[in-house]
Design a protein around this nucleic acid. Structure first.
Lengths: 218, 218, 218, 218
DNA sequence: GATGAATGAGGGTTCATTCAT
DNA sequence: AATGAATGAACCCTCATTCAT
C-alpha cells in the first residue's frame, strides 16, 4: 500500500513544492528585512515566482506569516519532544546531566538558528496577538515539560516537596529566555554559552534540592 | 532668585508643554495601536494639535519614538537607581529582604506601567537597532547593579566565592524578564506575582549561598 | 525574417505603448499647466491610467521630464539633420535660397509646435541644470551646423575671410532665438514671420558677403 | 522746503527700510534657489525678520516677486534710458561708435548682474504671464529705442530706406538676447564678449548701410 | 507692529491586492 | 495555473498662510 505522500499526483506535488518554497522564501526575507519592511514582491522574487502566484497559495502577507511561524515552531519543538522524558530520571545526578544536556543542545540550536529565532523573538510580538499565540504554544509546551520534571523529581524524592512547581517552571523559562537574548546578541560567543549553561543548571538544581550537601559535595 | 526653569519665557514654556504633550500622546497611541500601525495623524489628534505641528517638534515618526523611549526609560530607571545600594547589605537576611523588596516593587511597577512596558518589550525590537539600544542602556544598568550585589555578597562572605557573577546576573535578569512577560499576559494576577516573587528570591538565594542550612532553617 | 521591432511580445508591445502614452500625456499637460503646476495625477489621468501605473514607468515627475525633453528634441532635431548640408552650397545665391528655406521651415515648425517649443523655452531653465542640458545638445548642434556653413562659404570664396565664424554663428542663433520668442507670442502672425524671415536672411548675407554689390544688385 | 523723503516719519522710514530689505532678500534667495524652491521662510530669514512680518508687507510670495522684478527692471532700464539719444547721431561713424559703446556697456552690466539677469531669464517665464509682462515692458522699450535709431538713420540718410525697421529691431534684440544667454553660461569669458560685441556691431551696420564701401574702407 | 507657533490642504510615493492575458 | 501590469487607498511630509500673543 503506497504511502499518502506517493498518492499525490504530479500536479499536487508541484503545488506542495511551490508552497514550501514560498514559506522558505518568506522566512528568509522576513529574517533579513523584518516582517513590516518585507513586501510581497520580495517574497515572490526570492521564491522565483510572480507576485500573483503568491496569492494563489496564501490569502495575504499575514497568512504566510502563520505558515512561517508554524514551520519554525515545528522545527524548534522537536528538540523538546525528544527530551520530554522526565520519567526516565531517577536521581539528582541524572537530572543534572539531563538539564546540562538540554541547555547545551538548546543553546546550540538557538545559535545555529539565530536568524529564525531572532525573527520570532523580535518581530512576532509587534505584529498581532495571533502571531504570538503561534509561539505561545511552544512556550506552554516547554512550561509543561519543565514542570513535569519538577513533579517527577518531587515524587521520586530528589527535589524538595515545598516547591511551587508552576512558578519554578516559569523561572526556568526565564533563565532560558535571557539565554536566547544573549545568544542573539552575539551568536559566536561560545564561551559565554558554556558558562551560562553551567550557571543555569546550578540555579535550577540548587533551587530544587532538599539539601545543599548533595550539591556541594560532588 | 528664580531657578533656571522659571526663567523660561511664556513662549518657551508653551513650546515645552506642546512637546511633552506630543511625547505623552505618542506613548499612549503607540501602546494602543503599536508603532507600525500608528499614523502621525493619530498622534497629533491624540495630542489635540494639527499634523503640521507634529513636524515642528519631531523629524518624523521615528524621531518621536526616541523621545518616547527616553522618557519611559527615565521613569523605569528611577526604581533601580533608588535601589542601587549593594554596600548597605550586611548579611544574607538583609539581602533576602532587599531582593524580595525589589522584586515586589518592580513587579508592581510593571503591572502598573504594563502599557508602556508592553510596548517597549513588544515593539522596540521590531523597529530597528537604535530603538533597542535605548532599552539596552537600562538592561545593562540592571546587569551591572545585580552583579554588584553579587560582588559585595562574596566580599562580605555571605555568598560563595565560586560564583560566575556575570552569568549569575544574566540569570537574574532572565528571572525578571519572564516576570515581565507573565505580568503583561495578565496584569491583574497579583497572586502569581507574589508566588513568583517568592520563587525568584529562592532561586537567587539558594543559588548563591554557601550552605543551604542558612536557607532551610529560618 | 521579422525585424527586431516586430519581435516584441504582445506584453512588451503594450508596455511600450503605455510608456509612450505617458510621455505624450506628460508633454501635453506640462505644456498646458507648466511643469511645476502639473501633478503626477494629472499626467496619469490624461494618459487614462492610474497614478500607480505612472510609477511603474518613471521614477518620479522629474524622470518623465527627461523622456519628454528627449522626445521633443528628437523631433526638432530632425529638421536640422535634413539641412546639415553646407557642402552642397556653391555660391551666394544658393546660400541665400537655403537660408531662406531653413528660416521658413523652422519658423513654420515652431509655429506648429509652439506648445512644445514654448514649454521647452519657458520651463526647462527653471527646473534644473540637467533639464537644460537636454536642450543644450540641440543648440550646440545648431551652432555647429551654422558655423559649418560659414566655414564652407569662406573656403568657396563667397564669404569674406575675416569673419569670426564662432561669434557669427552665435549671432545667427540669436536671430533665430528671438524669432522663437516672437512666434510664441503670436503663433498666428504669418506676416511677421515672412517679414522677419527676409530680414534675418538679409542680416546674415550682408554680414558675410565680401562686397555689397553682390547683394544690392539682384 | 524739505524733500519728500525727509517728510517721512521715523516709522514710515523704518517701514520702507524693512520692505526694501525684504525685496533685496527675496531677490537674493530667488537667485540662489529659484522661485519655486524658495520658501517664504527663506526670504524672511535672509531678511532677518519673522515670517509673519513678510505678510505685513506683501500679499504673498507671488506679490514680492513683482516687487523684485520691478526693482531689477528699474536698475537695468537705466542703461537704456541714458542711451536713448538716437537724434544725436549724425553719421555712420557715430552710429557705429554708439552701438559698440552700448554693446560693451550692456554686456558688462549683464556679466556683473548675471545673478539677477539669470533669474529673470530662467525663472520668470515659468511662473506666469504677469511675471513676464514685467519684463516685456523692458524689451518693448528696447525694441522702441532700437527702432528709433533705425528711423533716424534712414531719415538722416546713413541707412538704406528699404529697411523693415520693426523686423530689424527684433533682430537686434535677438543678437542681444543670445549674448545674455552666452554671458550667463560663462560670465568670466571677457574675450568672447569682446569678439561677439564686434560681430554684433558688424551684423547691424552691414545690414543697414546703403553701400558696403562705407564699411569696408575705414 | 512684529513674531513664530499652529495649521491643514495638497501632492508625492508606496505597495498590497486584483485580474486580464 | 502562472503571471506581472494595473490599481488606488493610504500615509507621509511640506510649506503658504493665519492669528494669538
Amino acid at each position: 500500500m503506497p504511502s499518502e505522500k506517493t498518492q499525490l499526483t504530479r500536479a499536487e506535488q508541484r503545488r506542495a513544492d511551490t508552497e514550501a518554497q514560498l514559506v522558505r522564501s518568506a522566512a528568509e526575507v522576513f529574517g533579513r528585512l523584518g516582517y513590516h519592511a518585507t513586501r510581497v514582491s520580495d517574497i515572490a522574487e526570492e521564491a522565483g515566482v510572480g507576485q500573483g502566484t503568491f496569492y494563489r497559495y496564501f490569502e495575504d502577507k499575514r497568512d504566510v506569516l502563520d505558515a512561517v511561524v508554524a514551520s519554525m515552531m515545528e522545527r524548534l519543538g522537536k528538540v523538546f519532544e525528544d527530551n520530554n522524558a522526565a520519567e526516565q530520571i531517577n536521581d539528582l545526578a541524572e537530572y543534572r546531566a539531563r538539564a546540562a544536556d538540554i541547555a547545551t543542545k538548546a543553546f546550540d540550536l538557538i545559535a545555529v538558528e539565530h536568524r529564525s529565532v531572532g525573527f520570532l523573538m523580535r518581530e512576532l510580538p509587534s505584529i498581532d496577538e495571533r502571531a504570538v499565540s503561534g509561539m505561545s504554544g511552544l512556550t506552554d509546551l516547554m512550561h509543561t515539560v519543565i514542570e513535569q520534571y519538577y513533579v517527577v523529581g518531587i515524587r521520586r524524592g530528589y527535589f524538595r516537596a515545598d516547591l511551587d512547581t508552576d512558578a519554578a517552571a516559569t523561572g526556568v523559562l526565564g533563565l532560558g529566555l535571557i539565554a536566547v537574548w544573549s545568544i542573539l546578541r552575539d551568536p559566536e560567543d561560545q564561551e559565554f554559552r558554556r558558562r551560562y549553561g553551567d550557571t543555569v543548571v546550578d540555579f535550577i538544581v540548587r533551587h530544587a534540592v532538599k539539601d545543599l550537601t548533595e550539591v556541594t559535595q560532588p
